[in-house]
């Protein structure tokens, strides 16, 4: 064969790409079409499983945090970027609520382990990734109030996970309610039985002499 035929073939390919970059629609996925997405103005749709930095979820009011400050996420966080302090009531008794919940996003490595270990479905990974700032000490240390986001937001960014979590929570609540009711009933029954027994005892004691020997037989 003659010299240069391979060169001509190669040049044909580049020329076709040049022409098709104008004739074919951008992003259509055809051969030769441009693939660029001009980021700040245009964005690719976010994938639901995409995860970035964690946020704290609340149901109706910001005070109704799901977080109970159990510290599991802080313990399991590989780079230890979560810092939690429990809230205390007036008597100094710790409450099931975080007073301080800090996440240092300069340290966070976006692994999502906090979300996985949380038994209360209180912390989830967000889709927000444009948190760049020129100050790495203050602006990227997020406090409790910066991390708060509604359940609606969670449903917006991760509809499937949101549904799953909600049903799970509802089931847990129902189960808890049932259990509570059962316990209540049991307690009531017990109380009733106890009352009855006491009443019987009282009547017996009234009828007979007080059983002082029984008291002495107690180890106490």
């Amino acid at each position: 064969m003659f010299f240069g035929l391979g060169i001509l073939r190669g040049m044909n390919i580049t020329l076709m790409n040049f022409i098709r970059s104008y004739t074919r629609k951008r992003g259509s996925g055809e051969i030769g079409a441009l693939t660029t997405v001009q980021y700040p103005e245009e964005r690719l749709p976010e994938k639901e499983k995409f995860r970035n930095f964690p946020f704290l979820i609340y149901d109706d009011k910001p005070e109704d945090l799901r977080c109970v400050a159990c510290d599991i996420c802080a313990q399991d966080c590989p780079p230890r970027c979560i810092y939690i302090v429990k809230e205390t009531d007036e008597a100094g008794k710790p409450m099931k609520k975080p007073a301080v919940f800090d996440i240092d996003f300069t340290v966070c490595m976006n692994c999502g382990i906090c979300e996985e270990v949380c038994p209360f479905d209180a912390i989830f990974m967000d889709h927000e990734f444009e948190i760049a700032d020129s100050d790495r000490h203050d602006k990227l240390l997020y406090h409790r109030d910066d991390l708060l986001k509604t359940n609606e937001h969670f449903h917006k960014i991760r509809p499937n996970d949101g549904r799953e979590v909600d049903t799970r929570l509802a089931e847990a609540k129902e189960a808890k309610a049932k259990k509570d009711e059962a316990r209540k009933k049991a307690a009531e029954a017990k109380a009733a039985a106890k009352a009855k027994a006491e009443a019987e005892k009282a009547t017996e004691a009234k009828e007979d002499k007080p059983p002082e020997t029984e008291k002495e037989s107690d180890p106490q």
């Binding site: 020329l15 040049f18 970059s21 030769g32 079409a33 441009l34 693939t35 660029t36």
Partner: peptide, 10 residues
């Protein structure tokens, strides 16, 4: 511009 277009860039 031309080289970009040949490489399917803008």
């Amino acid at each position: 511009k031309v080289v970009a277009r040949m490489q399917n860039r803008i």
